[in-house]
Design a protein around this nucleic acid. Structure first.
Lengths: 124, 124, 124, 124
DNA sequence: GTGGTCTAGACCACC
DNA sequence: GTGGTCTAGACCACA
């Protein structure tokens, strides 16, 4: 698991880790039931503190993306029933992105194409 | 100009102000060349510090959404040439949103519909 | 003896085992003098380590719920004289539960009903 | 705000802080809208690290007992709609307590009295 | 071995 | 001033 961290970014490290793991799960890098790297391993190879990784894992746990099994560490377990909440969040953020895109002169067609690419194609 | 501010949110107040002004511009509430409310007016009616509004305006200026004139205050002046940069930013954020949507079980069709609604329809 | 274990819970496995055995005793599933399943049997059917079950049994022994005999295994033997200590513990925990209930808007009547149901009715 | 912390307890410090604040809110020591002590103040007078207090506050925030306003620190804001979840939790914990009480020889009348006292009387 | 907790101190963002 | 983030190291509980 290679993490690309931007230490100069205003986005907290733990948030960057969380985001990348979510994307990895969506891309199928981690399947439901897979073990995530241990906190120590991730902290070590990224050169950051275990507490920071710990915070990222706690966030993922709280959001329902993983469970931590005392025996096996962190396991990907995408709990259902969050669709409604996620939809609402996505809706809100899309509005802002669309607004910025519009002002920048990005046409509807272009924006639609960006959305399609981000999801990996509509037919998928 | 009515601002909906959530003081308990983790999103900074100045960022909330910036976001809402960007959306207002995209929706045509403010047209190119229009004057934004003065810092003092906005701060007064929202019950916040002028420094906070000032920071939001400086951010907007820096992003190229407005220009400030000592005599006329803040004027909406959407500078061109930012399309590429915005596109890149939108692309990156869409990827994360799409990932979260996928995991939550939101289908490609649903996601496309959300994107369409956010932009205000593709035919626009 | 069927154990419902939640490996993702923050409550330790050995504690979950201990709790369920205490409840089983209170419900009369095990009577005073009955033999508990052997450590090996319980560990086997639950798919956990014998050390974990052992820890649960030692806890029960220490709390005075069972006695262990090298020949007969673990025997339910509820020693008296613990009423005062248990009362104190229950008192303390009830205070916290009542506080949470109050804040959540659970009325005195509702809380009383919950307590009654938990005990199995006052007339018992 | 005086905190009674038991550093020898197996209950984490942050949990003890959380519990005492919940009880204080239930008892009316803190009313809805009141400011909690600052993280630094609490940490200082309790002789513990700010991170520990921070964790307690984060937990309270996550549970909906407080909100943190960037300007004013932590504010008690008991959000509604948690009744169902709390009821379920209380129900489960009461079952275990009742079981322990029964085995210890605490009668239904005694248990009912303990519950009444914990809530502060049914007529309240 | 794992994650969970805690410390003592630091720096930053926000208001 | 506030809370939020992060570090470098430590110890513990659990399995």
């Amino acid at each position: 698991m290679i993490m690309k961290l931007d230490f100069a970014s205003s986005v907290p490290i733990y948030q960057q880790i969380r985001d990348q793991i979510v994307q990895a799960v969506a891309e199928g890098v981690f399947l439901d039931g897979d073990r995530l790297p241990t906190i120590r391993a991730l902290a070590g190879e990224a050169g950051i503190n275990t507490m920071t990784v710990n915070k990222a894992y706690q966030l993922l746990k709280q959001e329902g993306y993983i469970v931590t099994d005392r025996r096996n560490g962190a396991i990907v377990r995408c709990s259902g029933g969050r669709k409604k909440a996620v939809k609402k969040k996505v809706e809100k953020e899309l509005e802002l992105l669309a607004a910025e895109a519009k002002i920048a002169g990005i046409s509807g067609e272009e924006f639609a194409e960006l959305c399609r690419k981000a999801y990996g194609g509509w037919s998928e």
